[in-house]
Computed example of a mutant assay.
Amino acid sequence: MTRLLIVGPPGAGKGTQSARLTETFGIPDISTGDIFRANIREQTPLGVQVKAIVDAGDYVPDTLTNALVSSRLDEEDARDGFLLDGYPRTLEQVAYLEQLLAGKGQALDAVIQLVADQDEVVARLRKRAIEQGRADDTEEAIRHRQEVYARETSPLIAVYRDRGLLVEVDGLGDIDEVSDRIAEGLAARGIFATQDDAAAG
């Protein structure tokens, strides 16, 4: 019954570590991006609404994002734990998630924050962009995304730090090293992957 949230700047290896965590703990990786895409693909009523908003180049409002996440957390595979990625993104969403989980007698166990030096992440993403032939992914564009992330998430990180939920992990270095740091940070909070979790994963 492990309920986690992972946050980190673009290029900090969040996707890789999320995949490892879900396998280790035998819990689903719940990404708002994936939820949006699945609902759009399946043409659910919420998906139709999201598609119209995204096609117009607008942000999906909190109320709609909350409804999609709530629906996903009600699914069978999320009943015994989950890893949230990309949600919550606003203080309103933080409050909604807290109320939603409290209504089920649940709460987040930890918030994993991958911390990475911005210059190193920018260099890593720029190298990847060049290798993949994405000329439009300029250093300026990459730095802008980093700044947007920092601006949007700093209030959320402050809230979770105040609540004693934050596990700060250096996100740079070898993938296995970062995974070990996350495991150590969670263990310090009394969160371990049991044999049952590993078998389920």
Score class of each variant (00 low, 15 high):
53 I>K: 03
50 V>T: 15
66 N>I: 07
79 R>W: 05
78 A>E: 14
55 D>V: 07
72 R>L: 06
74 D>P: 01
30 I>K: 00
125 L>D: 10
75 E>H: 09
41 R>C: 04
29 D>T: 10
49 Q>I: 05
54 V>Q: 01
71 S>M: 13
32 T>W: 00
39 N>V: 01
114 L>S: 01
31 S>E: 00
86 G>N: 08
49 Q>T: 08
72 R>H: 14
96 Y>E: 14
40 I>A: 02
55 D>Y: 09
37 R>C: 02
33 G>K: 01
47 G>H: 06
33 G>V: 12
103 G>C: 11
106 Q>Y: 05
120 E>P: 08
111 V>Q: 13
31 S>R: 00
52 A>F: 05
112 I>N: 05
75 E>C: 07
37 R>T: 09
81 G>N: 11
75 E>M: 14
106 Q>V: 07
47 G>E: 02
94 V>P: 03
130 I>C: 12
89 R>L: 03
35 I>K: 05
101 L>Q: 03
78 A>L: 11
68 L>S: 15
115 V>S: 08
96 Y>P: 05
78 A>Y: 13
51 K>E: 12
85 D>T: 14
66 N>H: 01
113 Q>G: 10
120 E>T: 13
57 G>R: 02
117 D>G: 06
130 I>L: 13
87 Y>G: 06
80 D>E: 14
87 Y>V: 02
39 N>G: 01
78 A>M: 05
47 G>T: 04
108 L>V: 14
124 R>K: 13
95 A>S: 12
53 I>D: 08
73 L>P: 08
82 F>H: 15
127 K>C: 13
